[in-house]
Amino acid sequence: MMTEIEFLSWVRGPGLQIATIIFVAGIVIRILEILLLGRKGNLAEAKGSEMSGGFRTILSRSVPTPSTFKRSTFTIVAGYIFHLGLFLVIFFYAPHILFFKDVIGLSWPSLPTPVIDATAVISIIALLAVIVHRFNNKVLRYLNNFEDMLVWFVTIAPLVTGYIAFHRIGMTGPTLLAIHILSVEILMVVFPFTKLMHAFTIFMSRWYNGAMSGYRGVES
């Protein structure tokens, strides 16, 4: 049996290294296997620009039209909350920034800890609402598969373990922290091989969509 400290140093050392290698290499492979497929050039006479259409859609697709908002309100609101919450918690919690400074040498101002704490709680609630909605909504229940469940689990786990570690609920500090880091490592390992990849490919997809529409003179 590992001691608490051994467990913590493993997740901080070899564990993190393995997860980082799989995370980075996996993402590179996934992006290459998409881009290397290539795409035929368009021989039809253009009515608009691919470039401006592509870049416009990367931004504009973040804002649903009023009628789309009305039809998919829950998905949009809950989606926005947990994405924004994750972003703030991951990148603006002071100890996280210290970690990034260690790894990449850059640092930036943090948000006050109580704000992060509240954001984490709100994000957890949003993700719980998302899973309840997933089981209650006809379409989502139909689409739902193992990967969807796995991705949901590995996304909410770091939030929950981080919250528990911060508030020292249950076990002692080092074990809680180690569990939190381990949950992040699981997320990193799963990331490149699941729909979590949309964090990167969303920019490509929106670009392709906007470019193809823009070429035909339509803002998509």
């Binding site: 998409i34 998905t75 379409v139 989502l140 729909k195 490509m204 392709y208």
Partner: peptide, 16 residues
Amino acid sequence: DSSVASFFSSCVHCGM
């Protein structure tokens, strides 16, 4: 092609 691969990689099963 690359657009199709990117599209399938991006789908999050949101149902919208």
